[in-house]
Amino acid sequence: MYKITNKQELNSAVTLMDIEAPFVAQKAQAGQFIILRVDEEGERIPLTVSGFDRENGTVRVVFQRVGATTEKLHSKKVGETISDFVGPLGRETKLDGLKKVCIVGGGVGCAIALPIAEKLTAMGCDVTSVIGFRSKELLIFEEEFRKASSRLFVMTDDGSYGRQGNVCVPLNEMFEQGERFDEVITIGPLVMMKFVVLATKPTGIPCTVSMNPIMIDGTGMCGGCRLTLTRNGERMTKFACVDGPDFNGYEVDFDEVMARSSIYRNFERHAYEEACNLFKKEVE
Protein backbone atom coordinates (compact mmCIF):
# COMPACT_ATOMS: atom_id res chain seq x y z
CA MET A 1 0.00 0.00 0.00
CA TYR A 2 1.21 3.49 -0.83
CA LYS A 3 0.32 6.45 1.37
CA ILE A 4 -0.82 9.84 0.15
CA THR A 5 1.21 12.41 2.09
CA ASN A 6 0.01 15.60 0.42
CA LYS A 7 -2.93 16.62 -1.73
CA GLN A 8 -3.74 19.94 -3.36
CA GLU A 9 -6.56 20.82 -5.67
CA LEU A 10 -4.79 23.00 -8.22
CA ASN A 11 -8.08 23.94 -9.85
CA SER A 12 -11.55 22.52 -10.35
CA ALA A 13 -10.25 19.72 -12.58
CA VAL A 14 -6.62 19.13 -11.62
CA THR A 15 -5.23 17.57 -8.44
CA LEU A 16 -1.68 17.23 -7.13
CA MET A 17 -0.66 14.36 -4.89
CA ASP A 18 2.56 13.31 -3.21
CA ILE A 19 2.62 9.56 -2.71
CA GLU A 20 5.01 7.59 -0.54
CA ALA A 21 7.01 5.20 -2.75
CA PRO A 22 10.64 5.25 -1.60
CA PHE A 23 12.08 2.95 -4.30
CA VAL A 24 10.43 4.96 -7.06
CA ALA A 25 11.42 8.30 -5.49
CA GLN A 26 15.03 7.14 -5.34
CA LYS A 27 15.24 6.57 -9.09
CA ALA A 28 12.70 8.87 -10.74
CA GLN A 29 13.88 11.40 -13.34
CA ALA A 30 12.02 14.13 -15.20
CA GLY A 31 10.16 12.63 -18.14
CA GLN A 32 9.59 9.19 -16.63
CA PHE A 33 6.20 7.84 -15.59
CA ILE A 34 4.60 5.60 -13.00
CA ILE A 35 1.60 3.28 -13.11
CA LEU A 36 -0.86 3.22 -10.25
CA ARG A 37 -3.97 1.36 -9.21
CA VAL A 38 -6.27 3.01 -6.71
CA ASP A 39 -7.77 -0.18 -5.31
CA GLU A 40 -7.90 -3.94 -5.81
CA GLU A 41 -10.54 -3.79 -8.52
CA GLY A 42 -9.15 -0.75 -10.28
CA GLU A 43 -7.56 -0.03 -13.62
CA ARG A 44 -3.83 0.54 -14.04
CA ILE A 45 -3.24 4.09 -15.24
CA PRO A 46 0.06 5.69 -16.30
CA LEU A 47 0.92 9.15 -14.98
CA THR A 48 4.09 11.04 -15.80
CA VAL A 49 5.99 12.10 -12.67
CA SER A 50 5.90 15.78 -12.01
CA GLY A 51 8.34 15.72 -9.11
CA PHE A 52 10.02 13.63 -6.45
CA ASP A 53 11.53 14.01 -3.00
CA ARG A 54 14.31 11.47 -2.64
CA GLU A 55 14.84 12.21 1.06
CA ASN A 56 11.22 11.79 2.09
CA GLY A 57 10.64 9.03 -0.43
CA THR A 58 7.66 10.63 -2.14
CA VAL A 59 6.72 11.02 -5.78
CA ARG A 60 4.52 13.84 -7.08
CA VAL A 61 1.79 13.22 -9.63
CA VAL A 62 -0.60 15.78 -11.06
CA PHE A 63 -3.70 14.51 -12.79
CA GLN A 64 -6.79 15.81 -14.46
CA ARG A 65 -10.07 14.20 -13.49
CA VAL A 66 -11.13 12.80 -16.84
CA GLY A 67 -12.47 9.37 -15.97
CA ALA A 68 -13.61 6.94 -13.33
CA THR A 69 -10.10 6.09 -12.12
CA THR A 70 -8.84 9.66 -11.77
CA GLU A 71 -12.10 10.59 -10.03
CA LYS A 72 -11.61 7.75 -7.57
CA LEU A 73 -7.97 8.77 -6.98
CA HIS A 74 -9.08 12.35 -6.35
CA SER A 75 -11.53 11.15 -3.70
CA LYS A 76 -8.64 9.81 -1.58
CA LYS A 77 -7.54 11.94 1.35
CA VAL A 78 -4.13 12.64 2.84
CA GLY A 79 -3.14 9.69 5.02
CA GLU A 80 -5.15 7.23 2.96
CA THR A 81 -3.46 4.70 0.71
CA ILE A 82 -3.70 3.40 -2.82
CA SER A 83 -3.02 -0.24 -3.59
CA ASP A 84 -0.32 -0.08 -6.28
CA PHE A 85 2.36 2.34 -7.45
CA VAL A 86 5.12 1.11 -9.74
CA GLY A 87 8.01 2.80 -11.49
CA PRO A 88 9.88 4.74 -12.56
CA LEU A 89 9.09 3.54 -16.07
CA GLY A 90 10.19 4.73 -19.49
CA ARG A 91 13.25 6.77 -20.31
CA GLU A 92 14.12 10.13 -18.79
CA THR A 93 13.99 13.24 -20.96
CA LYS A 94 17.40 13.76 -22.57
CA LEU A 95 18.64 17.25 -21.77
CA ASP A 96 22.43 16.91 -22.05
CA GLY A 97 24.20 19.77 -23.74
CA LEU A 98 21.13 21.98 -24.22
CA LYS A 99 21.85 25.71 -23.88
CA LYS A 100 18.64 27.34 -25.07
CA VAL A 101 15.30 25.58 -25.00
CA CYS A 102 11.66 26.44 -25.54
CA ILE A 103 9.21 24.50 -23.38
CA VAL A 104 5.61 24.40 -24.59
CA GLY A 105 3.10 23.03 -22.09
CA GLY A 106 -0.63 22.68 -22.37
CA GLY A 107 -3.17 22.10 -19.60
CA VAL A 108 -2.23 19.39 -17.13
CA GLY A 109 0.84 18.67 -19.32
CA CYS A 110 2.38 21.75 -17.71
CA ALA A 111 2.80 19.71 -14.54
CA ILE A 112 5.16 17.40 -16.40
CA ALA A 113 6.86 20.20 -18.32
CA LEU A 114 7.67 22.08 -15.10
CA PRO A 115 10.32 19.68 -13.71
CA ILE A 116 12.01 19.71 -17.11
CA ALA A 117 12.09 23.51 -17.13
CA GLU A 118 13.45 23.47 -13.58
CA LYS A 119 16.13 20.94 -14.38
CA LEU A 120 17.21 22.87 -17.48
CA THR A 121 17.41 26.14 -15.55
CA ALA A 122 19.44 24.43 -12.84
CA MET A 123 21.80 23.23 -15.58
CA GLY A 124 22.32 26.85 -16.65
CA CYS A 125 20.21 26.51 -19.77
CA ASP A 126 18.19 29.49 -21.02
CA VAL A 127 14.53 28.47 -20.86
CA THR A 128 11.62 30.12 -22.64
CA SER A 129 8.27 28.73 -21.54
CA VAL A 130 4.93 28.92 -23.29
CA ILE A 131 2.05 27.57 -21.22
CA GLY A 132 -1.52 27.40 -22.43
CA PHE A 133 -4.88 26.72 -20.78
CA ARG A 134 -8.52 26.79 -21.76
CA SER A 135 -9.24 29.60 -19.32
CA LYS A 136 -7.88 31.45 -16.28
CA GLU A 137 -9.69 29.09 -13.98
CA LEU A 138 -7.55 26.17 -15.21
CA LEU A 139 -4.18 27.94 -14.92
CA ILE A 140 -1.56 26.01 -12.91
CA PHE A 141 2.08 26.56 -11.86
CA GLU A 142 2.41 30.08 -13.26
CA GLU A 143 4.75 31.24 -10.47
CA GLU A 144 6.85 28.09 -10.68
CA PHE A 145 7.27 28.53 -14.42
CA ARG A 146 8.21 32.16 -13.98
CA LYS A 147 11.01 31.11 -11.64
CA ALA A 148 12.20 28.36 -13.97
CA SER A 149 12.19 30.46 -17.16
CA SER A 150 13.93 33.57 -18.48
CA ARG A 151 10.77 34.34 -20.47
CA LEU A 152 7.22 33.16 -19.93
CA PHE A 153 4.18 33.39 -22.20
CA VAL A 154 0.84 32.55 -20.64
CA MET A 155 -1.95 31.85 -23.11
CA THR A 156 -5.65 31.16 -22.63
CA ASP A 157 -8.08 30.02 -25.30
CA ASP A 158 -10.76 32.44 -24.14
CA GLY A 159 -8.46 35.34 -23.23
CA SER A 160 -9.55 35.32 -19.59
CA TYR A 161 -5.90 35.54 -18.53
CA GLY A 162 -2.58 36.31 -20.23
CA ARG A 163 -2.91 36.51 -23.99
CA GLN A 164 -5.73 35.04 -25.94
CA GLY A 165 -4.85 32.26 -28.35
CA ASN A 166 -3.12 28.94 -28.44
CA VAL A 167 0.51 28.19 -27.64
CA CYS A 168 1.51 28.31 -31.30
CA VAL A 169 0.85 32.08 -31.45
CA PRO A 170 3.92 33.21 -29.44
CA LEU A 171 5.91 30.30 -30.84
CA ASN A 172 5.29 31.44 -34.42
CA GLU A 173 6.05 35.07 -33.49
CA MET A 174 9.39 34.05 -32.03
CA PHE A 175 10.24 31.99 -35.09
CA GLU A 176 9.24 34.86 -37.39
CA GLN A 177 11.53 37.19 -35.47
CA GLY A 178 14.37 34.79 -36.14
CA GLU A 179 14.49 33.38 -32.64
CA ARG A 180 16.17 29.95 -32.57
CA PHE A 181 16.44 27.23 -29.89
CA ASP A 182 18.52 24.09 -29.49
CA GLU A 183 15.27 22.23 -28.94
CA VAL A 184 11.53 22.67 -28.51
CA ILE A 185 10.03 20.33 -25.90
CA THR A 186 6.26 20.07 -25.87
CA ILE A 187 3.94 18.29 -23.46
CA GLY A 188 0.17 18.50 -23.51
CA PRO A 189 -2.91 17.38 -25.40
CA LEU A 190 -2.15 15.38 -28.56
CA VAL A 191 -3.69 17.93 -30.87
CA MET A 192 -1.63 20.74 -29.30
CA MET A 193 1.60 18.76 -29.66
CA LYS A 194 0.74 17.98 -33.26
CA PHE A 195 0.44 21.68 -34.04
CA VAL A 196 3.57 22.64 -32.10
CA VAL A 197 5.45 20.10 -34.23
CA LEU A 198 3.96 21.56 -37.42
CA ALA A 199 4.86 25.10 -36.32
CA THR A 200 8.43 24.15 -35.43
CA LYS A 201 9.12 21.99 -38.48
CA PRO A 202 10.01 24.82 -40.93
CA THR A 203 12.75 26.03 -38.55
CA GLY A 204 14.49 22.66 -38.47
CA ILE A 205 14.74 22.89 -34.66
CA PRO A 206 14.53 19.44 -33.01
CA CYS A 207 11.11 18.98 -31.41
CA THR A 208 10.51 16.45 -28.64
CA VAL A 209 7.00 15.32 -27.68
CA SER A 210 5.86 13.34 -24.62
CA MET A 211 3.34 10.58 -25.25
CA ASN A 212 0.95 9.13 -22.68
CA PRO A 213 -1.03 6.44 -24.48
CA ILE A 214 -3.23 3.66 -23.13
CA MET A 215 -1.13 0.92 -21.56
CA ILE A 216 -1.38 -1.85 -18.96
CA ASP A 217 1.95 -3.07 -17.65
CA GLY A 218 4.33 -0.29 -18.70
CA THR A 219 7.19 -2.73 -19.26
CA GLY A 220 6.63 -3.63 -22.91
CA MET A 221 4.49 -6.68 -22.30
CA CYS A 222 1.09 -5.67 -23.62
CA GLY A 223 2.00 -3.61 -26.67
CA GLY A 224 -1.12 -1.49 -26.19
CA CYS A 225 0.94 1.71 -26.19
CA ARG A 226 2.43 1.11 -29.64
CA LEU A 227 2.75 4.00 -32.01
CA THR A 228 4.15 4.37 -35.50
CA LEU A 229 7.24 6.42 -36.30
CA THR A 230 8.46 7.27 -39.79
CA ARG A 231 12.24 7.44 -39.88
CA ASN A 232 14.15 7.85 -43.17
CA GLY A 233 10.99 6.98 -45.07
CA GLU A 234 10.51 3.75 -43.17
CA ARG A 235 7.54 3.15 -40.86
CA MET A 236 8.33 1.42 -37.59
CA THR A 237 6.39 0.38 -34.49
CA LYS A 238 7.62 1.59 -31.09
CA PHE A 239 6.29 1.05 -27.59
CA ALA A 240 5.80 4.31 -25.66
CA CYS A 241 6.43 2.55 -22.34
CA VAL A 242 9.95 1.29 -23.06
CA ASP A 243 11.07 3.35 -26.08
CA GLY A 244 9.48 6.58 -24.79
CA PRO A 245 7.55 8.38 -23.47
CA ASP A 246 9.61 11.05 -25.30
CA PHE A 247 9.78 10.86 -29.09
CA ASN A 248 11.06 12.95 -31.97
CA GLY A 249 7.88 14.84 -32.84
CA TYR A 250 8.68 14.86 -36.57
CA GLU A 251 8.56 11.05 -36.65
CA VAL A 252 5.28 10.44 -34.78
CA ASP A 253 2.07 9.58 -36.68
CA PHE A 254 -0.18 11.85 -34.60
CA ASP A 255 -3.39 11.03 -36.43
CA GLU A 256 -2.94 7.36 -35.58
CA VAL A 257 -2.08 8.12 -31.94
CA MET A 258 -5.19 10.29 -31.66
CA ALA A 259 -7.39 7.58 -33.16
CA ARG A 260 -5.93 4.98 -30.80
CA SER A 261 -6.46 7.19 -27.76
CA SER A 262 -10.19 7.17 -28.41
CA ILE A 263 -10.68 3.39 -28.59
CA TYR A 264 -12.48 3.15 -25.25
CA ARG A 265 -14.27 6.51 -25.44
CA ASN A 266 -17.72 5.03 -25.03
CA PHE A 267 -16.69 2.63 -22.28
CA GLU A 268 -14.92 5.41 -20.38
CA ARG A 269 -17.79 7.84 -20.66
CA HIS A 270 -20.11 5.23 -19.24
CA ALA A 271 -17.71 4.32 -16.40
CA TYR A 272 -17.15 7.99 -15.63
CA GLU A 273 -20.85 8.72 -15.40
CA GLU A 274 -21.23 5.80 -13.03
CA ALA A 275 -18.32 7.02 -10.91
CA CYS A 276 -19.74 10.55 -10.77
CA ASN A 277 -23.13 9.22 -9.74
CA LEU A 278 -21.44 7.19 -7.07
CA PHE A 279 -19.54 10.15 -5.67
CA LYS A 280 -22.60 12.35 -5.78
CA LYS A 281 -24.40 9.79 -3.71
CA GLU A 282 -21.58 9.79 -1.18
CA VAL A 283 -21.61 13.57 -0.88
CA GLU A 284 -25.36 13.81 -0.35
Partner: peptide, 14 residues
Protein backbone atom coordinates in the same frame (compact mmCIF):
# COMPACT_ATOMS: atom_id res chain seq x y z
CA UNK B 1 -1.87 -3.23 -37.13
CA UNK B 2 -2.34 0.02 -35.21
CA UNK B 3 -6.05 0.27 -35.94
CA UNK B 4 -8.46 0.28 -33.01
CA UNK B 5 -9.49 -3.29 -32.35
CA UNK B 6 -6.10 -4.86 -33.02
CA UNK B 7 -4.62 -6.39 -29.87
CA UNK B 8 -1.57 -8.42 -29.02
CA UNK B 9 -2.66 -11.66 -27.37
CA UNK B 10 -0.72 -10.43 -24.32
CA UNK B 11 -2.85 -7.30 -24.06
CA UNK B 12 -6.14 -9.05 -24.78
CA UNK B 13 -5.51 -11.86 -22.29
CA UNK B 14 -4.06 -9.51 -19.65
Amino acid sequence: ESLNGVYSANEYLT
